[in-house]
Amino acid sequence: MALDFANSEGYQLQPKKSVVINISGNSNNTKLEEDNLMMGNTPMPNVEQSTHPGIIRTTTRKNNIQSNTNENITKARRSAYSLLGTGFHVHNGLDPESLLHIYKTHILPVLLYGMELLTPSGKPLEQLGIFQKRMLKQVLSLPTRCPDPAVYILTGILPIEAQIHIKTLTFFNNVCHQSEESID
């Protein structure tokens, strides 16, 4: 169906980007029956993981959350390191207020990308929180043993869990307030 629609609209689907992921609804490791789906005359490969608009999709929800958490932390760390040369540190760098603004606008969105759809809990949520606390302590040159509530009070930044809840509620609100004619 997708190939027919693409042909009628005058665009081509990328065979290398079109894959099949067998999503299991259960948590045990039972292997689902693999269908051999075709795109035209080309068989579509069955894969364990694929990326769709920057969000990693895997065979289970738990793997989705863990994979995206790890990837977001890696990307946020790279974003922070890329800003170090521009003064993204307190020692001989920018003032704390500017540093926090840069963190909120350049690093935090990367760290939380897609989390309103995945709503992590447990270990992935803890990993995101640990990354944020370490990053804020490093940026502001606070000692690692500085209490976490002090970091949040000094910076005015909410804990990761609260930020994800806000993003989730905002997303839900946006979906609920769409017009009746909306496709979504």
Rank of each mutant, 00 (worst) to 15 (best):
D148V: 10
L128F: 00
I73E: 01
M1K: 13
K133N: 09
Q66H: 10
S79W: 03
I21M: 03
P143D: 09
N26D: 09
E180G: 06
I102E: 10
P124C: 05
E116N: 04
S27V: 12
E9I: 10
H106R: 14
G93Y: 05
I55C: 03
R78Q: 13
Q163P: 04
N7C: 12
R78L: 13
Q132E: 02
L118E: 00
N46F: 04
N92Q: 14
L112G: 00
N22L: 13
T69E: 00
G25F: 09
I55P: 06
L142A: 03
V47C: 03
S82M: 13
P149V: 05
G93C: 10
K104A: 15
V90L: 15
P149N: 07
L169R: 09
E97G: 12
Y152I: 02
N63M: 08
M44R: 07
T51F: 07
S182E: 07
T51Y: 04
E9W: 15
K31G: 00
K123Q: 14
L111I: 03
T86W: 14
T69V: 07
T105I: 14
E161W: 02
N22W: 09
P143L: 07
S82R: 15
P124D: 07
T59C: 09
V139Q: 10
Y81I: 15
F88D: 01
H89G: 08
